[in-house]
Protein backbone atom coordinates (compact mmCIF):
# COMPACT_ATOMS: atom_id res chain seq x y z
CA UNK A 1 0.00 0.00 0.00
CA UNK A 2 1.21 3.46 -0.87
CA UNK A 3 1.48 5.97 1.95
CA UNK A 4 -1.22 8.62 1.79
CA UNK A 5 0.21 11.79 0.28
CA UNK A 6 -0.40 15.28 1.59
CA UNK A 7 -2.30 16.23 -1.51
CA UNK A 8 -4.71 13.40 -0.80
CA UNK A 9 -5.38 14.73 2.71
CA UNK A 10 -5.86 18.30 1.51
CA UNK A 11 -8.18 17.35 -1.31
CA UNK A 12 -10.28 15.16 0.97
CA UNK A 13 -10.52 17.99 3.48
CA UNK A 14 -11.51 20.48 0.78
CA UNK A 15 -14.24 18.22 -0.52
CA UNK A 16 -15.49 17.69 3.02
CA UNK A 17 -15.61 21.46 3.64
CA UNK A 18 -17.48 21.96 0.36
CA UNK A 19 -19.98 19.29 1.37
CA UNK A 20 -20.61 20.65 4.83
CA UNK A 21 -20.68 24.27 3.67
CA UNK A 22 -24.05 23.69 1.98
CA UNK A 23 -25.52 22.62 5.32
CA UNK A 24 -23.85 25.51 7.12
CA UNK A 25 -25.15 28.06 4.60
CA UNK A 26 -28.72 26.81 4.80
CA UNK A 27 -28.56 26.92 8.60
CA UNK A 28 -27.09 30.42 8.56
CA UNK A 29 -29.71 31.69 6.12
CA UNK A 30 -32.51 30.20 8.14
CA UNK A 31 -31.11 31.64 11.39
CA UNK A 32 -30.89 35.06 9.77
CA UNK A 33 -34.44 34.80 8.42
CA UNK A 34 -35.68 33.77 11.86
CA UNK A 35 -33.80 36.57 13.61
CA UNK A 36 -35.17 39.25 11.28
CA UNK A 37 -38.64 37.76 10.85
CA UNK A 38 -39.51 36.41 14.28
CA UNK A 39 -40.04 39.87 15.89
CA UNK A 40 -43.15 40.09 13.69
CA UNK A 41 -44.92 37.71 16.05
CA UNK A 42 -44.46 40.19 18.92
CA UNK A 43 -45.22 43.31 16.89
CA UNK A 44 -48.20 42.22 14.82
CA UNK A 45 -50.92 40.05 16.37
CA UNK A 46 -51.63 36.80 14.52
CA UNK A 47 -55.20 37.93 13.77
CA UNK A 48 -53.78 40.94 11.95
CA UNK A 49 -51.46 38.73 9.88
CA UNK A 50 -54.39 36.47 9.00
CA UNK A 51 -56.34 39.39 7.50
CA UNK A 52 -57.01 39.85 3.82
CA UNK A 53 -55.73 43.40 3.31
CA UNK A 54 -52.08 44.11 2.57
CA UNK A 55 -51.31 47.82 2.68
CA UNK A 56 -48.14 48.22 4.74
CA UNK A 57 -47.86 52.02 4.59
CA UNK A 58 -51.07 52.21 6.65
CA UNK A 59 -50.13 49.23 8.86
CA UNK A 60 -52.36 46.61 7.23
CA UNK A 61 -50.25 43.44 7.34
CA UNK A 62 -52.66 40.71 6.18
CA UNK A 63 -50.45 38.18 4.39
CA UNK A 64 -53.19 35.79 3.25
CA UNK A 65 -53.61 37.41 -0.20
CA UNK A 66 -49.87 37.11 -0.78
CA UNK A 67 -49.73 33.42 0.17
CA UNK A 68 -52.83 32.78 -1.94
CA UNK A 69 -51.30 34.71 -4.84
CA UNK A 70 -48.09 32.68 -4.81
CA UNK A 71 -49.99 29.40 -4.55
CA UNK A 72 -52.42 30.13 -7.38
CA UNK A 73 -49.67 31.26 -9.76
CA UNK A 74 -47.54 28.22 -8.92
CA UNK A 75 -50.52 25.88 -9.18
CA UNK A 76 -51.42 27.33 -12.57
CA UNK A 77 -47.84 27.01 -13.77
CA UNK A 78 -47.68 23.37 -12.65
CA UNK A 79 -51.03 22.57 -14.25
CA UNK A 80 -49.65 23.67 -17.56
CA UNK A 81 -45.96 22.77 -17.30
CA UNK A 82 -46.12 19.25 -15.83
CA UNK A 83 -48.10 17.48 -18.59
CA UNK A 84 -46.35 19.44 -21.33
CA UNK A 85 -42.91 18.93 -19.79
CA UNK A 86 -43.32 15.19 -19.28
CA UNK A 87 -44.82 14.75 -22.74
CA UNK A 88 -41.85 16.57 -24.29
CA UNK A 89 -39.42 14.46 -22.29
CA UNK A 90 -41.15 11.25 -23.40
CA UNK A 91 -41.07 12.39 -27.01
CA UNK A 92 -37.38 13.26 -26.88
CA UNK A 93 -36.32 10.13 -25.02
CA UNK A 94 -38.61 7.49 -26.51
CA UNK A 95 -40.12 8.53 -29.79
CA UNK A 96 -38.07 11.16 -31.59
CA UNK A 97 -35.60 9.99 -34.23
CA UNK A 98 -31.96 10.55 -33.42
CA UNK A 99 -31.52 13.78 -35.41
CA UNK A 100 -34.62 15.40 -33.88
CA UNK A 101 -33.42 14.45 -30.45
CA UNK A 102 -30.02 16.00 -31.04
CA UNK A 103 -31.63 19.29 -32.00
CA UNK A 104 -34.41 19.32 -29.40
CA UNK A 105 -32.47 18.63 -26.24
CA UNK A 106 -29.99 21.52 -26.50
CA UNK A 107 -32.78 23.83 -27.68
CA UNK A 108 -34.84 23.06 -24.59
CA UNK A 109 -31.80 23.65 -22.43
CA UNK A 110 -31.18 27.04 -24.06
CA UNK A 111 -34.80 27.92 -23.30
CA UNK A 112 -34.05 27.16 -19.65
CA UNK A 113 -31.22 29.67 -19.65
CA UNK A 114 -33.28 32.67 -20.77
CA UNK A 115 -33.08 35.49 -18.22
CA UNK A 116 -36.40 36.03 -16.50
CA UNK A 117 -36.39 39.81 -17.07
CA UNK A 118 -36.45 39.16 -20.78
CA UNK A 119 -39.41 36.84 -20.42
CA UNK A 120 -41.10 39.54 -18.36
CA UNK A 121 -40.64 42.07 -21.16
CA UNK A 122 -41.99 39.64 -23.72
CA UNK A 123 -44.87 39.00 -21.30
CA UNK A 124 -45.76 42.68 -20.92
CA UNK A 125 -45.49 43.51 -24.59
CA UNK A 126 -47.03 40.42 -26.20
CA UNK A 127 -48.66 37.96 -23.81
CA UNK A 128 -50.50 40.47 -21.60
CA UNK A 129 -52.44 42.16 -24.44
CA UNK A 130 -53.02 38.76 -26.06
CA UNK A 131 -54.47 37.20 -22.90
CA UNK A 132 -56.79 40.18 -22.38
CA UNK A 133 -58.18 40.05 -25.91
CA UNK A 134 -58.31 36.26 -26.25
CA UNK A 135 -60.14 35.70 -22.96
CA UNK A 136 -62.11 38.96 -23.01
CA UNK A 137 -61.17 39.89 -19.44
CA UNK A 138 -60.68 43.42 -18.04
CA UNK A 139 -56.87 43.22 -17.93
CA UNK A 140 -54.18 40.85 -19.12
CA UNK A 141 -52.07 41.40 -16.00
CA UNK A 142 -53.37 38.27 -14.26
CA UNK A 143 -52.29 35.18 -12.35
CA UNK A 144 -52.95 33.22 -15.53
CA UNK A 145 -50.44 35.27 -17.51
CA UNK A 146 -47.87 34.76 -14.76
CA UNK A 147 -48.63 31.03 -14.69
CA UNK A 148 -48.22 30.81 -18.45
CA UNK A 149 -44.75 32.37 -18.40
CA UNK A 150 -43.65 30.58 -15.23
CA UNK A 151 -44.87 27.32 -16.76
CA UNK A 152 -42.74 28.08 -19.78
CA UNK A 153 -39.77 28.63 -17.49
CA UNK A 154 -40.41 25.39 -15.57
CA UNK A 155 -40.75 23.22 -18.70
CA UNK A 156 -37.02 23.13 -19.61
CA UNK A 157 -36.13 21.97 -16.09
CA UNK A 158 -38.83 19.29 -16.14
CA UNK A 159 -37.89 18.13 -19.64
CA UNK A 160 -34.17 18.05 -19.01
CA UNK A 161 -34.29 16.10 -15.74
CA UNK A 162 -37.10 13.75 -16.84
CA UNK A 163 -35.40 12.99 -20.10
CA UNK A 164 -32.22 11.99 -18.29
CA UNK A 165 -34.26 9.72 -16.03
CA UNK A 166 -36.07 8.09 -18.96
CA UNK A 167 -32.76 7.67 -20.74
CA UNK A 168 -31.36 5.82 -17.73
CA UNK A 169 -34.07 3.13 -17.86
CA UNK A 170 -32.34 -0.05 -19.10
CA UNK A 171 -33.14 -0.99 -22.69
CA UNK A 172 -33.96 -4.52 -21.52
CA UNK A 173 -37.15 -3.24 -19.82
CA UNK A 174 -38.47 -1.90 -23.10
CA UNK A 175 -37.37 -4.99 -25.03
CA UNK A 176 -39.09 -7.27 -22.52
CA UNK A 177 -42.30 -5.26 -22.67
CA UNK A 178 -42.35 -5.16 -26.47
CA UNK A 179 -41.50 -8.84 -26.66
CA UNK A 180 -44.55 -9.64 -24.58
CA UNK A 181 -46.72 -7.93 -27.16
CA UNK A 182 -47.20 -4.52 -25.55
CA UNK A 183 -47.63 -1.59 -27.95
CA UNK A 184 -45.01 1.20 -27.83
CA UNK A 185 -47.55 3.40 -26.01
CA UNK A 186 -48.25 0.70 -23.42
CA UNK A 187 -44.51 0.28 -22.95
CA UNK A 188 -44.02 4.00 -22.35
CA UNK A 189 -47.00 4.41 -20.04
CA UNK A 190 -46.77 1.17 -18.05
CA UNK A 191 -43.05 0.36 -18.03
CA UNK A 192 -40.65 3.17 -18.92
CA UNK A 193 -42.38 6.08 -17.15
CA UNK A 194 -43.00 4.16 -13.88
CA UNK A 195 -39.40 2.94 -13.88
CA UNK A 196 -38.16 6.53 -14.28
CA UNK A 197 -40.69 7.89 -11.81
CA UNK A 198 -38.35 9.22 -9.17
CA UNK A 199 -36.29 11.16 -11.70
CA UNK A 200 -39.40 12.54 -13.39
CA UNK A 201 -40.78 13.63 -10.02
CA UNK A 202 -37.49 15.30 -9.14
CA UNK A 203 -37.71 17.22 -12.40
CA UNK A 204 -41.27 18.30 -11.63
CA UNK A 205 -40.30 19.46 -8.15
CA UNK A 206 -37.30 21.40 -9.43
CA UNK A 207 -39.50 23.04 -12.05
CA UNK A 208 -42.24 23.91 -9.59
CA UNK A 209 -39.61 25.11 -7.15
CA UNK A 210 -38.32 27.50 -9.78
CA UNK A 211 -41.86 28.75 -10.38
CA UNK A 212 -42.65 29.47 -6.73
CA UNK A 213 -39.40 31.33 -6.15
CA UNK A 214 -39.49 33.33 -9.38
CA UNK A 215 -39.78 37.06 -8.75
CA UNK A 216 -39.00 39.32 -11.66
CA UNK A 217 -41.42 37.87 -14.18
CA UNK A 218 -44.38 37.65 -11.82
CA UNK A 219 -43.77 41.19 -10.63
CA UNK A 220 -43.95 42.41 -14.21
CA UNK A 221 -47.01 40.49 -15.42
CA UNK A 222 -49.34 39.56 -12.54
CA UNK A 223 -50.54 43.09 -11.72
CA UNK A 224 -49.53 42.90 -8.03
CA UNK A 225 -53.00 43.61 -6.62
CA UNK A 226 -53.20 42.03 -3.15
CA UNK A 227 -56.58 40.33 -3.60
CA UNK A 228 -57.23 36.98 -1.86
CA UNK A 229 -57.83 34.33 -4.55
CA UNK A 230 -61.13 32.58 -3.90
CA UNK A 231 -61.41 30.07 -6.71
CA UNK A 232 -60.66 29.25 -10.30
CA UNK A 233 -61.98 32.67 -11.37
CA UNK A 234 -59.14 34.30 -9.45
CA UNK A 235 -56.72 32.72 -11.90
CA UNK A 236 -57.99 35.31 -14.38
CA UNK A 237 -57.62 38.35 -12.15
CA UNK A 238 -54.54 40.18 -10.83
CA UNK A 239 -52.72 38.72 -7.83
CA UNK A 240 -49.72 39.70 -5.74
CA UNK A 241 -47.18 37.02 -4.88
CA UNK A 242 -44.94 36.82 -1.82
CA UNK A 243 -41.78 37.12 -3.89
CA UNK A 244 -42.97 40.21 -5.76
CA UNK A 245 -43.99 41.83 -2.47
CA UNK A 246 -40.57 41.28 -0.93
CA UNK A 247 -38.79 42.50 -4.05
CA UNK A 248 -40.97 45.59 -4.51
CA UNK A 249 -40.95 46.73 -0.89
CA UNK A 250 -37.62 45.62 0.56
CA UNK A 251 -35.68 48.51 -0.96
CA UNK A 252 -37.80 51.10 0.75
CA UNK A 253 -38.39 49.89 4.31
CA UNK A 254 -36.51 51.36 7.22
CA UNK A 255 -34.15 48.79 8.75
CA UNK A 256 -35.74 47.24 11.86
CA UNK A 257 -39.25 48.61 11.31
CA UNK A 258 -42.41 46.50 11.63
CA UNK A 259 -42.77 46.41 7.86
CA UNK A 260 -39.17 45.17 7.54
CA UNK A 261 -39.81 42.35 10.01
CA UNK A 262 -43.05 41.36 8.27
CA UNK A 263 -41.21 41.11 4.93
CA UNK A 264 -38.73 38.70 6.50
CA UNK A 265 -41.64 36.82 8.03
CA UNK A 266 -43.01 36.38 4.51
CA UNK A 267 -39.57 35.09 3.57
CA UNK A 268 -39.88 32.46 6.32
CA UNK A 269 -43.32 31.42 5.04
CA UNK A 270 -41.89 31.09 1.53
CA UNK A 271 -38.98 29.04 2.87
CA UNK A 272 -41.36 26.73 4.77
CA UNK A 273 -43.60 26.24 1.73
CA UNK A 274 -40.69 25.22 -0.49
CA UNK A 275 -39.40 22.97 2.32
CA UNK A 276 -42.78 21.22 2.50
CA UNK A 277 -42.87 20.79 -1.28
CA UNK A 278 -39.38 19.27 -1.23
CA UNK A 279 -40.06 16.97 1.73
CA UNK A 280 -43.30 15.72 0.17
CA UNK A 281 -41.51 15.02 -3.08
CA UNK A 282 -38.66 13.26 -1.28
CA UNK A 283 -41.01 11.02 0.66
CA UNK A 284 -43.03 10.14 -2.44
CA UNK A 285 -39.85 9.28 -4.32
CA UNK A 286 -38.65 7.19 -1.39
CA UNK A 287 -41.88 5.19 -1.17
CA UNK A 288 -41.96 4.61 -4.89
CA UNK A 289 -38.42 3.39 -5.00
CA UNK A 290 -39.17 0.79 -2.36
CA UNK A 291 -42.21 -0.39 -4.25
CA UNK A 292 -40.48 -0.57 -7.62
CA UNK A 293 -37.49 -2.31 -6.10
CA UNK A 294 -39.82 -4.91 -4.66
CA UNK A 295 -41.44 -5.49 -8.04
CA UNK A 296 -38.21 -5.61 -9.97
CA UNK A 297 -36.31 -7.85 -7.57
Amino acid sequence: MRPIGWSEVIITALIKVAGYSAIIFVTLIFTFLLREGAPTLFEVPLEALAQTRWYPIEDYYGILPLIGGSLIVTFGAALFAVPLGIATAVYIAEIAPRWAREILKPLVEILGGLPSVMLGFIGILIIVPFVREALDIPTGLTAFTGALILGGMAIPTIVSVSEDALDAVPKTYRDASLAMGATPWQTIWRVTLPAARSGVLTGVMLGVGRAIGETMTVMMVTGNAPVLPTGLRSLFSPVRTMTATIAAEMGEVANGSVHYHVLFFIGIVLFLISLIVNLTAASVVFKQRKRSERILS
Binding site: L141, G223, N224, A225
Partner: peptide, 23 residues
Amino acid sequence: TLFSRDTLLLPSSEGITSEVRQN
Protein backbone atom coordinates in the same frame (compact mmCIF):
# COMPACT_ATOMS: atom_id res chain seq x y z
CA THR B 1 -60.10 56.08 2.31
CA LEU B 2 -57.80 53.43 0.86
CA PHE B 3 -57.08 52.25 -2.65
CA SER B 4 -59.49 49.53 -3.75
CA ARG B 5 -57.95 46.11 -3.10
CA ASP B 6 -57.94 45.21 -6.76
CA THR B 7 -55.85 48.25 -7.73
CA LEU B 8 -52.90 46.99 -9.75
CA LEU B 9 -49.61 48.12 -8.20
CA LEU B 10 -47.05 48.37 -10.97
CA PRO B 11 -43.35 48.65 -10.23
CA SER B 12 -42.60 51.35 -12.80
CA SER B 13 -43.93 54.28 -14.79
CA GLU B 14 -43.28 52.27 -17.93
CA GLY B 15 -45.48 49.49 -16.58
CA ILE B 16 -48.38 51.89 -16.21
CA THR B 17 -47.86 53.50 -19.62
CA SER B 18 -47.62 50.17 -21.44
CA GLU B 19 -50.82 48.85 -19.85
CA VAL B 20 -52.80 52.06 -20.48
CA ARG B 21 -51.53 52.17 -24.06
CA GLN B 22 -53.00 48.76 -24.93
CA ASN B 23 -55.97 48.41 -22.55
